[in-house]
Structures are given as structure tokens and as C-alpha cells.
Write a protein that binds this DNA or RNA. Structure first.
Lengths: 214, 214
DNA sequence: CATTCACAGTACCGTACGGTACGGTTCGCC
DNA sequence: GGCGAACCGTACCGTACGGTACTGTGAATG
């Protein structure tokens, strides 16, 4: 979500970004098996030789795809104005919905499947790359929100990471894994709103300091 | 966990179970890439021809592996005696710890990675098989526990599935996914106890009917 | 002993993939 | 015009895998 216009071009030329886009499309609707160097070259109208010149080898291409996609979903920091109980709740619900939207995105799902598939291989920085550029990034947004809530006297917690872990679990539960396993996921989008509300209500009941609404 | 002695032999002969065991070992410490028909045959001291006779094709072998493992981890139903607040809490914590143990097991992780990797393929019943035989099974155990708690007046909830979803999220959060992505996972086992306690405390604060302890 | 069955071991086939090499084309630059 | 860099398209190579066929062998059965 929130595609910034020019999110600080990471490492690659426009042409190469086009190639990475094609590769992502290919991965999304064909799975890793369809992501062969030949098919990427064909889909992007470039030569295999150029692929190897630009990305080194197949793993380099995969890493580049993750980095590229991460640069596209860079999360915006919602400026915490003076928080009230209502606005805090509002921000939390918005965060929850955004999180669910991101996790259910087909590109996100495809990249997570890819990284998980490569996780058994030894080197394979893909998993930690996804962790670092994906979760840690969106977790930072939640972090400032939680801190702001505590500073405003609306939340009470000792360990911020524990609180965020709880919030994340309440929002996502095993939904992410179910989607990764292939559950149709088309029908559940409707419920994101309800799910976000439920999770935030529970979270506020756990960590709110007096003022929460069921 | 809880390997039943003879958990209702599913479909295969002892010899074939040995083969499936070898295949699982191979998958665990080599990933899917290492799970070739030739290597399975070599590891199990059988011929490729026998593999194809017994399991049809490679997908049949994978399905058999999942079914075989599921039959080994069949969860026991803990008989809910007359519940008190203390015993309910105890049972919930035990459930949480068992859940974390199961999810962090190397065979479970390997099979989940396998199923997720195959999820993009069209047919691929592997994902739903894992869902059906894995989560649904352990979810049933939690279900009866929750119902018993409600019948005893210790828990208050309307939708049992919602309650279980919350419990699951509080226990697991994104830990499962992080492990699937390759986070070392060796060091965090130590924290399972603390994590289970934390999750159950939070759950009881949300769904307990008056009597819970922080 | 002859037959049959189940199986191991291995050779084999077709295919597909990762990676490389090469000819041809465009474009900018002197 | 000459030249080199970048690059496309494609042919090519080595390898590895899924799946099949064939041979040998040991144990059961009559």
C-alpha cells in the first residue's frame, strides 16, 4: 500500500526496475516454479545475459525483487497529533487494517512464500531481508503510535515489544499463515474491518489505562 | 509431541512408514530441494520403482508424508475434570506450551515450508491437508477446553471461534512465521514458558468472568 | 525344484533449468 | 563514417530431476 512516487531509488536503473516489476508479476501469478531466468527475460523483453550482468545470478535477482518491493511499500509515519482516546483508537484501527491489507497483498504473499521456500537453504538472506525491510518497518510505525499513546496517558505497558507482539497477534492471529497456505483469501477481505475493530478493542482492554470502549 | 504408540495406522505398511520416516528426515535437514526421488530411494534403501508403485508420483509421496506425520502427532484430549479457575488456567498454559512446541518442531516447520512452497500451484491439496489434519485437530482440543470453561462459568464469550482465534493469536503472534522464515529458533525455546503464561493471562483478562490473576 | 511375488539396484529417457557464448542491432560519441 | 558500449535474441552446454524399464535376487508357495 501507499506507493510513494519516488521512494528513494534503491540501487537500480529504471530499466532494471521494469525488469523487477515483470519478475514480480511473474512470481505472483505463477509461483516460484514459473520464475525461471528464461521466462523473466521473455516477460521483460530483455536477454538472459543482461539479467546475469545486472543481478549476478538467480539469487541476486530474488534479493533485488525483495528490495525493490520493499522500497515500494515504504510505510508512511502517521504524525501523532495530540492523542485522545478516540483518535488513538482510530489510528490503531487504521494501522490494523493497513497491516491486514499489506499481508494479504498478492505480491507480499508471493514473496513470503518465496523466502520461506528458500529458508532451508543455508545462506539465503531472503528471510531476514523480508523481516528487516518488511515487519521491522511497519513495526516502527506501530512503535511510535504505542509510545505516543503511553506518553498521552492512554496506554500502560512496560515492554513496548511485548505490547506490539500482543497487538500483532490480536490483529493477525494465524490468518497470515492460512493465506500463505493457499486459503482462498478472496472472501475474508470483507472482514478486515471487523477484524481490525475486534483486535483493537481487545488490545485497548488489555493495555488501555481506563478509557476504552467495547 | 505426544506420540501415540499405534495411532490408528493410516494407510501404509510398516515398510512404507519407514520410507516416509526417511523422507521426513531428508526433508527436515535438506529442504525440499534435497527431497528428490533418487535421494529418498537411496536414504530408505528402496528402489525408485517401489516409490512410484506405493505413492503414485512425487506429489503422492508428499501427501503421504503429511498424513503420516499428522498421524504421529495426534493430540490427546485432556479430560476436563471439574474445572476451577486455577485448573483452567493450568490447562490453558499447558495447551499454549504444547502448541508452541508443536509449531516449533523441525518436522512441522519443514512440512509447513513444503506446503507453502506448493501453495501457488493450482491443485496442491497439501495446504488444506495441513490445515485440516494439523490446526483443526489441535483447535478441537482448545475448543472443548474453552467450552468446558464456559460451562463452568469461568469464561464468557459468544463466538467460540473468535475466542479461539484470539487465544491463538496471543500465544503465537508472528512467531510461527518468523520461524518459517528461518529465524534461528534455537534460542527462543527457552521463552516458551514465559510466552505461554503471558498469553494465557491476557486471554483470561479478556474472556475470564471475574476470576483471573495477573 | 519350478513358479511367482516383491523388491533393490541401476541404467535409461525426455525435459527443463541455470548459466554462458555469440551474432546482430541500436545508439551515442569522436 | 568509424567505433565502442549496451543490449536483444537465440543457440548452446552441463547437469539434474521425474518417471520408466529392465535385470537380478531372495523368500514364499505349490
Amino acid at each position: 500500500m501507499q506507493l510513494a512516487a519516488h521512494p528513494h531509488q534503491p540501487d537500480y536503473s529504471p530499466r532494471q526496475n521494469d525488469v523487477l516489476d515483470s519478475a514480480l508479476r511473474l512470481l505472483v501469478d505463477g509461483g516460484e516454479k514459473a520464475l525461471t531466468t528464461a521466462s523473466v527475460a521473455r516477460a521483460a523483453n530483455c536477454s538472459k545475459e543482461s539479467l546475469y550482468k545486472w543481478f549476478g545470478d538467480r539469487d541476486g535477482l530474488l534479493s533485488a525483487m525483495i528490495g525493490f518491493q520493499a522500497s515500494k511499500v515504504r510505510t508512511f509515519e502517521d504524525d501523532a497529533e495530540t492523542l485522545t482516546a478516540a483518535t488513538l483508537r482510530e489510528h490503531l484501527v487504521l494501522f490494523a487494517r493497513d497491516l491486514l491489507e499489506v499481508l494479504s497483498g498478492d505480491v507480499s504473499l508471493a514473496l513470503n512464500r518465496l523466502a520461506i521456500g528458500q529458508a532451508s537453504r543455508d545462506g539465503s538472506k531472503l528471510g531476514s531481508m523480508l523481516q528487516e525491510r518488511g515487519r521491522r518497518q511497519i513495526g516502527k510505525r506501530a512503535g511510535v503510535l504505542l509510545e505516543a499513546g503511553r506518553d498521552a496517558g492512554l496506554l500502560a505497558f512496560e515492554d513496548r515489544d511485548d505490547a506490539y507482539d500482543t497487538l500483532y497477534g490480536l490483529i493477525v492471529s494465524d490468518l497470515h499463515l492460512r493465506m500463505l497456505l493457499g486459503e482462498d483469501s478472496g472472501r475474508m477481505v470483507k472482514d478486515f474491518g471487523r477484524r481490525a475493530e475486534r483486535a483493537v478493542s481487545a488490545f485497548l482492554r488489555l493495555y488501555g489505562s481506563g478509557k476504552s470502549s467495547a
